[in-house]
């Protein structure tokens, strides 16, 4: 990507930066003020994490994290799936549904954090129960129309994360 900044002038007669910023701020007010879904992001420190040389898998207690960051987003949790583990295992599992989080790019920029594949997200389902998810789609590619507001520029990311089992991650 180029480091040069080029002003976006499209749709200037009908919808400019001021309109864009206004609408985003209204959305933020709704999301942060009204909805107020709080999540905690646990980013894997990819430099300090110890992995084996062949498979790149983490060794025991080798995974290291950056300081957790609290952020807000629009949370959707999909319905759990009742299915057998694998094929023909006969072990019945009710797998928790995926977590879908829509998060403003602006917020991530302000917090100076990025969400990557494999990072963990904690979401408090109730006062006493937190469920952790691992990012399976970091929503980095936001060039599509859906993630563009009125065709001006992308403004949010859709993160998909699937639930992790306790022996993989239980928070810090």
């Amino acid at each position: 990507m180029s480091n040069n900044k080029v002003p976006i002038t499209r749709l200037g007669k009908f919808f400019g930066d001021q309109d864009f910023n206004l609408d985003i701020s209204i959305g933020e007010e709704w999301l942060y003020g009204d909805m107020n879904f709080n999540l905690v992001l646990y980013r894997v420190d990819r430099k300090k994490t110890k992995t084996d040389n062949v498979y790149g898998e983490t060794v025991k207690d080798g995974i290291k994290f950056l300081p957790p960051v609290e952020f807000k987003g629009f949370v959707q949790i999909l319905a759990p799936e009742n299915k057998n583990l694998g094929t023909n295992s006969k072990l019945n599992q009710v797998e928790p549904g995926n977590l879908k989080v829509a998060v403003y790019q602006k917020q991530l920029d302000e917090l100076d954090v990025d969400i990557n594949f494999g990072d963990y997200i904690g979401y408090y389902e109730s006062e006493t129960r937190v469920r952790y998810y691992t990012v399976t789609n970091d929503g980095r590619v936001i060039s599509d129309n859906k993630h563009n507001y009125a065709g001006i520029r992308p403004y949010y990311r859709s993160i998909i994360a699937s639930a992790v089992v306790d022996n993989e991650f239980r928070g810090l």
């Binding site: 583990l85 694998g86 023909n88 797998e95 995926n98 998909i160 639930a163």
Partner: peptide
Amino acid sequence: DESVMDLEKRKYYIQS
């Protein structure tokens, strides 16, 4: 090999 390798699901190995 019956491993579950769906992109947006929990991935794990199953070998039978």
